[in-house]
Write a protein that binds this DNA or RNA. Structure first.
Length: 596
RNA sequence: UCCCCUGUAGCUCAAUUGGUAGAGCGAGCGGCUGUUAACCGCUAGGUUACUGGUUCGAGUCCAGUUGGGGGAGCCA
């Protein structure tokens, strides 16, 4: 029943004030966080200085007893401030909202919830809400209509002419909507003048042509319902100013409210859909390869163990080793580091397949290009060789970026203006130019010529060793200037499953290198000949029996096939110009960091 | 994991050879204004990440711990 839908409780509630944090979480406010530089301050101190038990987020309090109401400021933690989103969002500093003398701290240990005063009347029955994106899609034809918008406040500006301007964002597009709140709204004094960044609103009003510059239309409000106030605005973490990315990572629960991260979220969604569209329109099947794997043969690095054994006191066998036969799966198991081996089974039945899901690596990698949990796209195609694989990589990437340019011009314009000034140009160039394809051996020649010409590298260039980051960067950024596919690497630096070339010393592997981000795709044609595969397993001291089902694929109807892995976060980082993959995933996991 | 840099107000940063801790933004209050990253004034806000040293005296020097960044390795 909607008559009261959207209205916060009307009564004033009181709570003991020590349920409130001595002060709020670190704040700021993120409209246009600039490039991430500088160091962190308050949060680490909060983290280091306070040692309370309980939820780790609750520890994130900065010191400082900022008013008379607080309990001892340090060494004390609020058990439920940030961690309980329902009530804490409405907690107010006592004595401020409302300014009721009976509730001042000196009258007792009471604080006041900050709640809207009175439910403003609204149309009956209430109308369905519209998204800002939909409203802007046909702005001119909507003029004169009454609409209902729901969203969060970016800024409020008052005019003594008897009105306030509120920038409302609902995340449906980069654009916000200007709400004009006339002072004759019955809750104008009581609510509207108390609205700050971060408040949630439910607005009804007429779409009108804007009298100001900067927007074609605006909504002249007839009713504004403040659904949720911001607790002490002084502590709202995402204040309307520039914030560093490092800081915003520490408030990852609120960073989607900033321009940058809202845009990242929409771009991420758009690219994910583009990936699926490309495959679905080209005859691929999406295969859900397992997250948990008991294979000890994936071989792509350190893995996270999945176990239900008592970590403090695990069962042990006669040799004193942990007895995983008593574990949940009856053997040691892990989170997947790749769906490739599993999806090859489905490739050799459904022909064109792709996993697209989360992947986990327990590597101690501390870089802007690595995450412990990331999303990977791993297409696999049957009756295909390495060139088909490179064609597929090129087709997929170009489709993704073309789609992004078509659909998220608003967000890309922002990235272009505020994050990386060549962002759009780079994407347009990307979709128009053919990839450069060079053999590893030729790449070595190019690098050797560069060295002969005086170019200095920290690591030596020699056939047989892997290309270093500096080598890849030279090839992509200086020598070619656009994405490069390096193909046919020496066999000794690549995995066992990559197909041996006729020269006997290289395998059909490829890396797609992109300017600014490095390796974005790694792939290969797979070894489909059982005798050659076995020889490679033996050569690398890998027990054949561990790969029995993988080898079966080569025994029963084997066929040349190929595939690659595309790191989804690297794709987003490249598309947006965001420098760190931790800032293109909602909640990044990296060594020492699994907050939120 | 290795190398380098770094931690000062809610945020971004200053602080001379070791000598009383500052600004901008944000916030609160007031002024002005169909405003729009508004503008003007006033106010509040600090155990200089933590622990221990050196010193008459430490934000500054030393050691350890811890957080962050850049680069490398591993890779996607």
């Amino acid at each position: 029943m909607d008559g009261s839908r959207g209205h916060a409780p009307r009564q004033t509630r009181t709570v003991p004030i020590h349920h409130r944090s001595p002060d709020g979480p670190p704040k700021g406010r993120g409209c246009w966080p600039g490039p991430g530089v500088g160091a962190m301050g308050g949060l680490q101190r909060a983290r280091n200085g306070i040692s309370g038990a309980g939820s780790p987020r609750c520890d994130r309090r900065d010191g400082g007893d900022r008013s008379e109401e607080g309990p001892p400021a340090r060494g004390r933690r609020c058990p439920e401030s940030l961690c309980r989103s329902d009530d804490s969002a409405n907690l107010a500093r006592p004595g401020r909202y409302p300014p009721d003398p009976a509730l001042r701290p000196e009258s007792g240990i009471l604080a006041t919830f900050r709640v809207p005063t009175q439910a403003p009347p609204r149309t009956n029955p209430p109308m369905d809400p519209t998204s800002i994106a939909d409203l802007l899609a046909d702005a001119q034809s909507r003029i004169g209509q009454t609409v209902r918008l729901q969203g969060w406040v970016r800024t409020r500006r008052d005019s003594k002419a008897g009105l306030s301007f509120i920038q409302l964002s609902d995340g449906s597009s980069f654009a916000t909507m200007q709400i004009v709140a006339p002072s004759d709204l019955e809750n104008y004094e009581a609510d509207i003048l108390r609205v700050t960044s971060g408040c949630s609103l439910d607005v009804e009003g007429e779409v009108v042509e804007s009298r100001g510059k900067g927007q074609a239309i605006e909504v002249k409000a007839s009713h504004i319902d403040v659904r949720g106030f911001v607790d002490d605005p002084d502590t709202y973490p995402v204040s309307p100013k520039k914030h560093s990315y490092e800081y915003l990572r520490e408030v990852a629960h609120l960073r989607p409210r900033t321009n940058t991260f809202g845009a990242v979220g929409r771009v991420r969604n758009c690219l994910a859909m583009a990936v699926h569209e490309y495959f679905q329109t080209n005859g691929f099947q999406w295969i859900h390869t397992p997250i948990i794997t008991a294979n000890d043969c994936e071989g792509a690095g350190e893995m996270f163990r999945v176990s239900t054994l008592d970590a403090a006191n695990p069962p042990r066998n006669e040799q004193g080793e942990v007895d995983f036969s008593q574990d949940f799966f009856g053997r040691e198991s892990h989170l997947t580091v790749s769906g490739q081996l599993a999806v090859e089974c489905w490739c050799l039945a459904l022909s064109k397949v792709y996993p697209f899901g989360p992947t986990f690596r327990a590597e101690n990698s501390n870089t802007s290009r690595h995450l412990a949990e990331f999303w990977m796209i791993e297409p696999e195609i049957a009756f295909a060789d390495l060139n088909d694989d490179a064609d597929l990589a090129e087709g997929l990437l170009k489709h993704c970026f073309r789609t992004l340019l078509d659909r998220r011009g608003d967000d890309l314009a922002f990235f272009n203006e505020r994050v990386e000034s060549t962002c759009i140009q780079r994407l347009e160039h990307f979709v128009e130019s053919p990839f450069e394809r060079i053999d590893y051996t030729d790449a070595i020649d190019i690098l050797e010529k560069a060295v002969a010409g005086g170019r200095k590298f920290e690591y030596p260039v020699e056939w047989g060793s892997d290309l270093q980051s500096e080598h890849e960067r030279y090839l992509v950024e200086e020598h070619v200037g656009r994405p490069v596919v390096v193909m046919n690497y020496p066999k000794d630096i690549k995995a066992f499953y990559m197909r041996m070339n006729d020269d006997g010393r290289t395998v059909a592997a490829m890396d797609v290198l992109a300017p600014g981000i490095g390796e974005i795709i790694g792939g290969s044609q797979r070894e489909e000949r059982i005798d050659v595969l076995d020889a490679r397993l033996d050569e690398m001291n890998l027990p054949r029996e561990d790969y029995w089902w993988y080898r079966d694929l080569r025994r029963y109807g084997s066929v040349p096939h190929a595939g690659f892995g595309l790191g989804f976060e690297r794709l987003i980082a490249y598309a947006t110009g965001m420098a760190n993959v931790r800032d293109v995933i909602p909640f990044p996991r990296s060594p020492g960091n699994a907050d939120f």
